[in-house]
């Protein structure tokens, strides 16, 4: 992620310009619905076609997958597995936030700490998190604890690094403002540092959440921790292709929901940020 934030450019003698929005021409709603429907139909046609060509041992037909999905959602195992995966993902993410964000904010506000931790953090974050699966298995066995340790280790780095960056990017003018108006340390953190760090922290959280879900599934798949990943692994053993595909669809939906929730949180919390805010009202 390039998380460099651009400071809004104020042109001499003009109102602050609205943030340069993506230059896409949004087709009108009617057209969009038509074309998106066409795309969905085409996708399913392609899927059906590849199933016919490659055989349903490789690519089961859409109908088969949806039938498998429909029978899955009636079973208790499915819901337990889903709930377990969601719980461990969120738990891991929560711990990662609780560790990474405060540490990053503290480290980022000191030049000494930033320089001192640079190499260690840089090394630790490049270790592929799944490397820890054997160690975590050894210590905790195939359990949620093992999974959470893995998720925390993998997703803490983007949070930590974004927090460091966020603190360092607080506009020096803001610091002057807090000095000139004699704001207390508390008030400075609440009114200036945290809000201006929020865009970076939320970006970090989005990166972290993708990693967390990936690792949750990986820990289940390899480490046999309970959850969707384990169910997928079991379908592989039983060679139930359609059910395996159905689980992949479920895992993807989980990812989509996670993304949507975080995107909504971003829009809501960063209403003031140039990338989100609506057009100027008064003039």
């Amino acid at each position: 992620m390039t998380s460099r934030q651009t400071v809004p450019v104020i042109m001499a003698g003009s109102r602050p310009r609205a943030w340069p929005r993506s230059t896409r021409r949004v087709p009108d709603v009617g057209h969009r619905i038509v074309w998106r429907t066409v795309a969905v139909v085409a996708t399913f046609a392609l899927w059906q076609f590849s199933s016919a060509v490659l055989g349903d041992r490789v690519v089961p037909a859409p109908a088969q997958v949806f039938r498998a999905l429909a029978s899955l959602v009636t079973t208790a195992e499915f819901w337990t597995a889903l709930l377990t995966t969601v719980t461990s993902t969120l738990l891991g993410l929560l711990i990662a936030v609780a560790l990474g964000v405060p540490l990053g904010l503290v480290v980022g506000s000191s030049r000494f700490l930033t320089a001192s931790t640079r190499l260690s953090a840089d090394f630790l974050r490049t270790i592929p998190p799944v490397t820890l699966i054997p160690l975590a298995l050894l210590l905790y066995g195939p359990s949620i604890a093992m999974q959470v340790v893995l998720i925390v280790f993998g997703s803490v780095w983007p949070l930590f690094l974004h927090a460091i960056y966020a603190v360092r990017e607080v506009d020096p003018i803001m610091r002057d403002v807090s000095a000139v108006f004699r704001m207390s340390t508390w008030s400075r953190w609440v009114n200036i540092t945290l809000p201006s760090s929020a865009p970076f922290l939320l970006t970090g959280l989005r990166v972290a959440s993708t990693i967390a879900l990936l690792l949750a599934v990986a820990a289940e798949l390899i480490g046999n921790a309970p959850g969707i990943g384990l169910e997928i692994a079991l379908t592989q053993m039983g060679a139930q292709v359609a059910t395996a595909y159905a689980y992949v669809v479920v895992a993807a939906l989980l990812g989509v929901v996670l993304n949507l929730v975080l995107a909504a949180a971003q829009r809501c919390l960063l209403f003031w940020h140039p990338s989100v805010r609506s057009v100027d009202v008064a003039s």
């Binding site: 041992r57 490789v58 990986a218 292709v241 990812g255 996670l258």
Partner: peptide, 20 residues
């Protein structure tokens, strides 16, 4: 479609790929 496929936690397709 792209947003959906992108959201697949890539390790989840591993068993499918092994079968296929």
């Amino acid at each position: 479609e792209l947003e959906f496929l992108r959201a697949v936690p890539a390790v989840a397709i591993l068993p499918v790929a092994i079968i296929a």
